[in-house]
Amino acid sequence: MGICKQGRRMEESVVVACRAFWVALRLVVLGIWTFQWPAVQAGPDDAARSIAVVYPDIGEPFRSVFTTILDGVEDKAKGRVFNYAVSANASTAELAAELRKRDIRAVIALGRNGMRVTSSLDRSIGVIAGGVLSVPESEAQGIAVHSLAPDPALLFARLKSLVPNARRVLVVYDPRQNGWLIKLAREAAKAQGLELIAQEADDLKAAVRQYQDLLSSADPRRDALWLPQDSITVDESAVLPLVLREAWNQSLPLFSSSVAHVKRGALFSLYPDNTELGRALAGTALGYASSGSYASRGLHPLKDVLLAVNTRTASHLGINLTASPQRFNLVFPEP
């Protein structure tokens, strides 16, 4: 009888101990789940990486261009870069909500679609535009725009290297598209000891007339003709064939801001190094994300460039490319 009672007491003790163990374990588990971990404070590097890239959702060949730019952005950022492909009818409100959720501090907007969908974002988010030639100066004042238009300073430096006797640069431009670029070109020409003869034209008829006047008085021994990227003054069907033909007949050096023109007979052009352009865009975005302000607003010409040359045109002009210190990234006609 005593032994039975003793056994029952031991059994009850075990049960009590087991219950105590499970209660304690439950408290520990609950403690783990309800304990408020201290918030992780983002350091300067983490803040700097809070950037996004908004780019058009389009097909080839343009998709590859944007993909290469993205590669450059991600290489420079070396951290979390959020990419958003947007269609022509993408919702700004949906994008804004996604950016807020991810605590994005700066956005790289590529192409017209990228700029459109980011145009009404909260002003606390910095917008760095790229993949466009130009935007109205009124729009560019509040953001940073990396244009695809090559820096005139780089163009003129290449011109002097290939055509050392050049003294004047002739150009026809639409001020609505390239007024900002011609301002830079005037200073760049002075730095290279060149005189810039810039004629305005705001329609096709005026552009043709200006070219006819310039070409009739051009001196191939000292002049060179520059074709900017301009939908009015460098019209592909009416203007370009005329200018290429006359420049060839006069042995007048003609260079362009469009690589496609080199294939058709321009002496040389500068075109984007898309990977380096991506790195440059990322650098501007990282700077804004870290500081909350732009180092410089407005339009910036393309400085990350590659060089294309037409060997047939060079030979026609008596230019010995083998003696040039320039490195040619693209050669026409293709070997």
Rank of each mutant, 00 (worst) to 15 (best):
M1P: 14
G2W: 04
I3W: 08
I3N: 10
Q6V: 09
R9I: 13
M10I: 14
V15G: 09
A20Y: 01
W22M: 06
V23L: 15
V29R: 07
L30G: 11
G31L: 05
V40L: 15
A47P: 00
S50N: 15
I51W: 00
Y55W: 07
Y55I: 06
P56K: 12
I58C: 08
G59R: 11
P61K: 06
F62I: 09
F62D: 10
F66L: 06
T68Y: 02
I69R: 04
D71F: 08
G72I: 07
G72A: 07
A85F: 03
S87K: 10
S91V: 10
T92F: 02
R105S: 01
A106N: 02
V117K: 08
S119T: 07
I125G: 00
V127N: 00
I128L: 15
A129D: 00
V132R: 07
V132P: 01
V135F: 03
E137D: 10
S138A: 14
A140W: 05
S147M: 00
P150D: 00
P150F: 03
P152C: 02
A153P: 03
P164A: 04
N165G: 06
A166E: 04
V171H: 00
V171T: 08
P175S: 03
P175T: 01
L184V: 04
A185W: 04
A189V: 03
A189D: 03
L194T: 05
D202G: 09
A206F: 05
A207V: 02
S216F: 05
A218Q: 06
D219R: 02
R221K: 12
A224P: 12
A224K: 12
D230N: 13
S231M: 11
I232D: 08
V234Y: 09
D235T: 07
A238L: 14
E246M: 11
E246C: 04
F255S: 00
S256K: 05
T284C: 02
L286H: 00
S293Q: 14
S293Y: 10
Y294S: 06
K303A: 10
A308G: 09
L321I: 11
R327Q: 13
L330Q: 12
F332W: 14
P333R: 15
E334I: 04
P335G: 12
